[in-house]
Design a binder for these strands. Sequence first.
DNA 1: AAAAAAATGGAGTCACAACTACAAAACCCA
DNA 2: TGGGTTTTGTAGTTGTGACTCCATTTTTTT
Lengths: 211, 211
Amino acid sequence: MATAPVVESASGQRLTRKGQQTYRRIVSEAAALMYERGVASTRIEDVQTAAGVSASQIYYYFGEKDGLVRAVIDHQCESVLGVHTPLLANLDSVEALEAWRDVILSIHRDGRNQQGCPMGRLTSELSRSAPEARADLLAGFNRWEEALRDGLRAMRARGELPDRVDPESFALALLAAVQGGLVLTQARRDTVALEASLNTLIDCLRGHADH
Amino acid sequence: MATAPVVESASGQRLTRKGQQTYRRIVSEAAALMYERGVASTRIEDVQTAAGVSASQIYYYFGEKDGLVRAVIDHQCESVLGVHTPLLANLDSVEALEAWRDVILSIHRDGRNQQGCPMGRLTSELSRSAPEARADLLAGFNRWEEALRDGLRAMRARGELPDRVDPESFALALLAAVQGGLVLTQARRDTVALEASLNTLIDCLRGHADH
DNA sequence: AAAAAAATGGAGTCACAACTACAAAACCCA
DNA sequence: TGGGTTTTGTAGTTGTGACTCCATTTTTTT
């Protein structure tokens, strides 16, 4: 699940330091390409060029394309959660939630990362055809949801969250707002909907909290 | 834009009644397949089989695959908006908004339509590679947003909406909640997140309205 | 330093799916 | 009913991209 040290190639061989570097470079370039163009229209040859390796490496390390896609999924989950988990770990106020929102907005603003959420995008493209891809992505979403929920519970413990707001539901609402806002970001090429969506939820929170 | 009567084949020929029937059958079957499996992994041959036509028909009516995809996009936009527009046209109370929510939930509950929103799915798959596909989908989302916004404005006019809720932002928030909830529906294979997300927004509304 | 193990390059195979050509059939209007 | 147009079926062709093979180089281990 984690981007933990890779120890094996597809055929079960140990990897040397150089092998691990190559492995990681391939995954990282493949992830970038698949995010930009989608999985289906990213050819192995594109990955070769981007990572500066030849065809046989990719098959040596990942077996068939599915294996590479799995590795990309894990990579993207870790990459996304690596941004959110630390921010949500110290969720002690509405301001902290706003800081979280600002990070999300800054990532997707100004024409950067306009293909939405890497995890959401992979979910849309793969959840049907590749059952285990869906399972991996779901595990990622569950961790994300959990981080949000724990953060909200911490806020409640500090009295920063009104009683009528349910941390479980609100965590899902925030997650859905991010995902939906980013779907609309793909269509619109701006973050207006994402912003409106997150602000509406946060305002709601404040509205309740103030009274 | 509308599923208005099709009058021409790809090469500009008039269509007879029978031709139009075939045209529509192809679009409709293609839309169903592309929703289930995604655009990239739907082969023309699959569409042939599903629609009971042979290869030449599809190319006769739509030119290359892109043309069929465009037609599918229009079809799905009309299909989705055909559900939402009437429900949102008479948005006179929170109860009406709940009825809208219930329709959405019923469409995606019990294992049906677990591939998310047809428009959202197409957006994720196509928005980057096919610029005009994105434009069509954006136009669809704009109409959807507009329907929501007009509905909310009507609610406000009736005094059913608190002043502090901005119809523009709230419309986008609802739209994002649907899209995000449905992305999570694809991963989770249940509507829990969709439900939580819509309920959180509606509760927010009520919470404000009551005071 | 030499043997073993791992990593790499490049050329080649192969299946599949988009797309075409053309002739036959069905249809529509006079 | 007949002639022109629209619609359909069959049998291709072609380009592409996943995947393989094997010889060579580099790295690790003893």
